[in-house]
Amino acid sequence: MSAPTAKLLLAADRRKVAPLDPAEPLTIGRAAANRLCLANQEGVSDHHAVVRFSSSQGWLVCDWQSSDGTFLEGRQVHQCRRLDDGDEIRLGRSGPVLVFKCAVTPAPPSSPAPQSISVGNKHVAVAEIRTASVQSEPQHPHIFSWWLLLCLGGLLLLPFPLLFWPLQAGALAGWILLGSRKQHKLTLVLRDGRALRHGFANRRTALAHRNGIRQAIGQDPALP
């Protein structure tokens, strides 16, 4: 896989740009030895994160030795995760945000621009769309309350360990499994004020649709 041209922009000031070199990982942190030194930014560790290119996976962001974590589109990066055009990287829970910008290969000049876009089972004219965005929400927002209630109720079985421990283990597994599931909603706001929504199980697919729609209506996919 050839490396597309890419860069990082500081969300608070998009004039500050760090070009990315596929041959040399971009180290990020407060220490002066980093290729991207953020010495004056709160929440950034000395050696916080690395952005590098993989010939098999594309551009990746990896947590390095951060104390407050590295977050990609709101989800914590535990090892490495793939970057897509427009993704936001937050250093720490309240640190600076970097926007990943990747060059998109333009369509051939002879390719006609789409006149309408399909969202779910609906067709929307491109000219009617004002904005497109993606929001991620838990599929089971009340799972913690149900898990806590089940654990407290399980205390009644405490004298019966053969029943108590399997119940607690099952409750914990269910909480981890269901609590990690999210639905990613693509929202289109039309020029007449109406909003159309469509859910995706995969965030990358939802972002791909969002970026494609933004390109069709002439907006920058990297906008928040």
Rank of each mutant, 00 (worst) to 15 (best):
G218E: 04
Q183K: 15
A208M: 04
A171Y: 02
I143Y: 03
A103Q: 12
E42L: 10
L196P: 03
G179I: 01
L60N: 06
L188D: 11
L9I: 00
R52C: 09
A216D: 02
R75F: 10
G120K: 01
L10R: 02
R197V: 11
A216L: 04
R181K: 10
R130N: 11
V77I: 15
A113F: 05
A169S: 11
C37W: 06
P4N: 14
R191I: 05
P19L: 09
G174Y: 03
S110D: 06
L172K: 09
A201L: 01
I28N: 09
P161Y: 14
P221D: 12
P138K: 12
R52A: 11
P96M: 11
G95Q: 08
R75W: 06
N202G: 00
G174D: 02
E128T: 14
A206H: 00
L177K: 14
L196G: 02
G193N: 00
F200T: 09
S2G: 08
S116V: 03
P166K: 02
W147M: 12
L163F: 11
F164G: 05
L36R: 09
A31C: 07
C80A: 13
T131D: 15
F200W: 13
W64P: 05
H47S: 07
A169C: 12
R204S: 11
A12Q: 07
L152T: 12
A206P: 00
G92P: 06
R210M: 04
N40K: 07
C37T: 13
R81P: 02
L60E: 08
D87L: 10
L60H: 05
D13C: 04
P22D: 01
L26F: 08
E73P: 00
L163D: 07
T105G: 03
S45N: 01
T131F: 10
A11V: 01
G199D: 10
I117M: 00
L155F: 14
L157P: 02
L163E: 07
T131L: 13
E88F: 14
F160H: 12
L152K: 03
L36S: 08
V99S: 04
D220F: 03
V99N: 06
C151W: 09
Q168W: 03
Q135D: 15
K122I: 06
T5V: 02
G92W: 04
L152N: 03
P138I: 08
V97W: 06
D63W: 08
V97E: 12
W146T: 00
V119I: 08
E128I: 06
P159C: 15
